[in-house]
């Protein structure tokens, strides 16, 4: 059974010790009225909690409401396409986002990188997908087997000669599972296959691929890459 008086006394001691001691130690308060000290300490504690609560509310309004809403307003006015997900429509229907890769293994198209989450391709409309990676480490047996499997699959699908190396982006899954890009080399190696499936001249396709290569940004940032969805839409536009 806890004695309430004992408990109150202890609590008072803690408050006195932790909140008021620095002022009690001050030279001109050598003779201390303990009751006054305690009351002052309690008052200061209560004050601090009230300020903490009020300031939390004020800062929440500023950083959690005004700030994101102001950025949203400016973004919607200045960059409406980018702020709304860089969505792409074709024939009046939403086909995706130029920033988000799509699962696509159809012979008629260029293929994206392997993905741990199948590019959030839902089994049904409104199925909530998530970005995600395999998180396989460098000595993971499953990863080693997958790399060999993907190498063989890409090689045979695109009828590559033995001395042609499969680019690493086609062997490894991305971090987001939504990588919209492949390397220019990976796109070039798929030209023959797509051309054959579509009955097109490989040279025409090669020109399209070269046009699609995005160089390093500002001349030096990042790696050259090809946006697979944009390339495939351009491909559909050819016919």
């Amino acid at each position: 059974m806890v004695n309430m008086n004992e408990f109150t006394r202890l609590l008072n001691q803690v408050v006195e010790r932790f909140l008021f001691v620095e002022h009690a130690a001050h030279p001109h308060t050598r003779r201390v009225d303990r009751g006054a000290v305690r009351d002052a300490a309690w008052r200061r504690t209560a004050d601090a909690i009230v300020v903490a609560l009020r300031l939390l509310i004020v800062l929440t309004v500023i950083t959690g409401v005004l700030y994101p809403l102001a950025i949203t307003a400016v973004a919607q006015l200045a960059f409406p396409v980018q702020a709304n997900g860089s969505l792409v429509t074709a024939n009046q229907s939403l086909v995706g986002s130029s920033l988000i890769g799509q699962a696509n293994q159809a012979p008629l198209y260029f293929w994206p990188r392997p993905s741990a989450v199948d590019y959030m391709a839902g089994s049904a409309p409104d199925a909530l997908g998530s970005s995600g990676a395999t998180n396989f480490g460098p000595t993971n047996a499953t990863l080693a087997a997958l790399v060999r499997e993907r190498e063989a699959a890409f090689r045979s699908a695109n009828a590559l000669a033995a001395e042609v190396a499969v680019p690493p982006d086609m062997l490894f899954a991305s971090g987001s599972g939504l990588d919209p890009h492949i390397s220019p080399e990976a796109a070039r190696l798929q030209i023959a296959r797509v051309a054959q499936a579509r009955g097109l001249e490989p040279a025409a396709l090669a020109a399209l691929v070269e046009q699609s290569v995005e160089p390093p940004q500002l001349g030096f940032l990042g790696k050259p890459h090809v946006n697979v969805l944009k390339l495939n839409l351009a491909l559909d536009g050819l016919q």
């Binding site: 709304n84 997900g85 969505l87 086909v95 995706g96 409309p125 409104d126 839409l233």
Partner: peptide, 17 residues
């Protein structure tokens, strides 16, 4: 945003602030 990809599969694109 609910999209239907080039090969006709549904893809739900998350949005937000």
């Amino acid at each position: 945003a609910q999209a239907t990809t080039l090969v006709g599969r549904p893809q739900l694109l998350p949005q937000g602030p």
